[in-house]
Design a binder for these strands. Structure first.
Lengths: 215, 215
DNA sequence: TATAATACTGAATGAATGTTCAGTATTATA
DNA sequence: TATAATACTGAACATTCATTCAGTATTATA
């Protein structure tokens, strides 16, 4: 029996010191890319490992060799996505002077990113699914905490800047996240323009809701 | 072979003109009650028809005789729940004079109802699931529209009362629903007291966010 | 009383699908 | 070159579960 592995050869001129590491990275990336597209298109549950297998052109076992299981693969994608989002935001953030502007900038980015990345839909499906192993629950908790912390820091900057005045920063961080979370679900049924407008209106309300009492 | 059907006999003194209708109502109620409890406890997908069968003590076929399918059963529960919520709210609403107070009253009711009725969790799981038949999608759309309409009417009353001042009522209705939707997911991880406080804070923000500019 | 309509039964169906594992190929190491 | 470690294969496994349907019992109708 003949096995054809290693479809993509690494640069032949270079010494093959870490051919395996390269191959692993490449395969993981191929699996991740195909899986991301499929999860985004069909949702979490509706995407079978078999679908990914077909798209990648590798075996089912190979996926399990590189990722712990289906949940692990999805979690990997989410965490990778968050890392990218953070790093992109770090660049974008500098474009805005006030925290107020940052908030508008953030939701604009969020609105457009979320519409182009229907992965959020799969993520919501995944998050709201009842049956989850404890370690999965934990990784989700870490992610949620990350979102809240992000909001808290943003709000704190605004307070330090004296742009708005709130005592319960943590509470407001949760409220902001709730707003964005709910918005992401509603805006799924909208066109880009309408979604963007709704996000902006939400920030209008939120900002006036935490504005300093007297101007 | 012996079949034991009709475990609960109707009142024997009465004429059995509509014995069948009574039996049907009774059975539907028994199935609905068991299913509601199970969906709330285990979630939508994790609740198997077999579970409901065991809880009710009837056959699987009987469930399909009274409800179109699993989705139909769940949808029935949701719609029934909404009807009850509406009718309860109609009574509660009268306790509050201003729309502002109504809003606080509503979220209080919402917060407590949602915590005692973990059916919301199953509902979120169901709503966010990708694979849905067109007719199911339609019934969900109707429900969502109902929530938005409810908010719009509430806000409109506040405007008529001159409690707040907004031009884009529909937009704000969506934002209010988004807020409550996101809140319901976050508050699931909280104790009653904390959840209630968060809901109240959210209303604080929302109300100030739509308050008239000059006081 | 005979016939039709309704209210059930529950075993069988059938399809989907995450995961494993014994075995094979390739690359690194000594 | 021999041995170990790594990177795969893919068929088989194991389980879950919604749904159907031929048949039975009960009640309504004529």
């Amino acid at each position: 029996m003949i096995f054809i592995v290693q479809i993509c050869q690494p640069e032949s001129g270079e010494a093959s010191v870490n051919k395996k590491k390269q191959q692993t990275e490449l395969t993981k990336k191929k699996i991740a890319d195909a899986a991301r597209a499929l999860f985004a298109q069909k949702g979490y549950k509706a995407t079978a490992i078999e679908d990914i297998v077909k798209a990648v052109g590798c075996s089912a076992g190979n996926i399990y060799y590189h990722f712990k299981n289906k949940e692990g693969l999805f979690l990997y994608l989410l965490e990778e996505w968050n890392r990218e989002w953070d790093s992109n935001w770090l660049v974008k953030e500098k474009l805005y002077l006030t925290t107020t502007d940052k908030l508008y900038g953030m939701v604009e980015y969020l609105a457009l990113d979320q519409l182009s990345h229907p992965l959020t839909r799969a993520a919501d499906e995944f998050f709201n699914n009842a049956e989850k192993a404890p370690d999965v629950e934990e990784r989700i908790n870490v992610m949620v905490k990350g979102y809240i912390d992000f909001n808290r820091e943003l709000l704190q900057k605004g307070i330090d800047n004296q742009e708005f005045e709130i005592s319960n920063v943590s509470g407001h961080a949760i409220i902001l996240d709730s707003l964005l979370l709910g918005l992401s679900q509603h805006c799924r049924r909208m066109e880009r323009v309408e979604a963007l407008a709704t996000y902006r209106l939400a920030v209008d309300v939120f900002l006036q809701g935490i504005a300093k009492p007297i101007r």
